[in-house]
Design a protein around this nucleic acid. Structure first.
Lengths: 209, 209
DNA sequence: TAGATTGTTAATCGATTAACAATC
DNA sequence: TAGATTGTTAATCGATTAACAATC
């Protein structure tokens, strides 16, 4: 269905938002929605919504609109959330633990298999049943447990090194929370999150008159 | 200096990234940089960088380039990071605690004064010297302590309610981590972070061939 | 001075919006 | 059938890139 790689970054970034709104509507029992209604809810234009959806094929029906749960399922598939993933977290500090504790990811197929840290005080502990192991064992663990996704929550100075090890051992995507843009080869996906960037943007907006 | 509100969202979103790279360079003792060199480092075009900076005035010097620490300071000011802010966190769960523990925000002037939670087991505890107080006392605390920034780390279902209370008591910007877009009045700034959105984008990219 | 690199204008490209025929 | 709303093409708008004169 996916006319892949012809889809612009802007559209891709909106997909999770559509998914969020559609899931909510589905949960509250809404059966159908028109692009116009959805545009009002989401603060987009109806035109844009129709254009966006038509990057992936026609999900609507003329004169009727979109079937919420059908559309929601389609977007879930487009995002790859119909699959299961094996995930590890490097860095069992506060943020790493917070992510391990968040159950929402597992609901969408991202199963956290283990966490890794250098700190011997943390090694051996468990967070929601997820063991914290020594960072030196990470490489082998990735290979032996078919890990596809690596979450990087180590300090800035170690982020690239940890990423390199993940990539070398076959991880296919990196979700990086360290405040550097980690470098990866072509065939690996990466999202550099940069929490503080959004705080600074907020700061800008707050001071803008 | 700021030709405010004529600056596009796209430019504003790049400012924290410039700041990140410039701070790094400054720390490693780099004194000058040309738009061309910076473009290589950051993966942008030199043209774009010059255009971006010139939204705020001419920071460079023909034939020389940009003075790193000067430019860095300018961007700090543009982002409003030369000021001090009083901040509270609503929700002392894992993510709230992780944010309270992160010292980087304080370095940029965001001083976390208190955290608030409904859970009586958490109320009374301290994280890095920051007290967790009862959520019912939040409103008065905001007023009495001139809080400008509110961080929302409560569950989705409570996010709008907590935001409304913050806004009612005079908070000027909301950094929201709950997975809903919270609504705010015109004169208040908001950043809805949506961590899982970036995970889903990563998932899309990973599955794209 | 000559070389380098900015600031800025003009050209291009892409994304958003508008319009409307197709069709449920 | 008539009304509604999509899918899609065309028009507009804005952002990025290219070019170059200004100038350090």
């Amino acid at each position: 269905m996916q006319k892949s790689s012809r889809v612009s970054e802007a559209v891709i970034r909106r997909l999770p938002k559509y998914y969020r709104y559609l899931k909510d509507m589905q949960k509250s029992g809404v059966e159908r929605i028109s692009s116009k209604e959805l545009s009002k809810k989401m603060g987009l234009t109806a035109s844009q919504i129709r254009q966006d959806f038509n990057c992936f094929g026609g999900f609507g029906q003329q004169g009727y609109g979109y079937h919420v749960s059908e559309l929601c399922d389609e977007i879930r598939k487009i995002l790859g959330l119909d699959k299961e993933y094996n995930v590890i977290i490097a860095g069992a500090g506060n943020l790493g633990q917070a992510l391990a504790n968040y159950v929402g990811f597992e609901k969408e197929g991202f199963n956290i298999r283990a966490m890794f840290d250098v700190n011997p005080r943390l090694v051996g502990l468990s967070i929601r049943g997820v063991q914290i192991l020594d960072i030196d064992s990470m490489g082998d663990y990735i290979v032996n447990n078919e890990i596809q996704v690596g979450i990087v929550c180590v300090p800035k100075a170690k982020a690239q090194e940890v990423t390199d090890e993940m990539v070398k051992r076959g991880i296919k995507s990196i979700w990086n929370f360290a405040p550097v843009d980690v470098e990866i080869p072509e065939n690996v996906a990466v999202e550099n999150v940069h929490l503080s960037d959004t705080l600074y943007t907020l700061s800008y907006k707050m001071n803008e008159d």
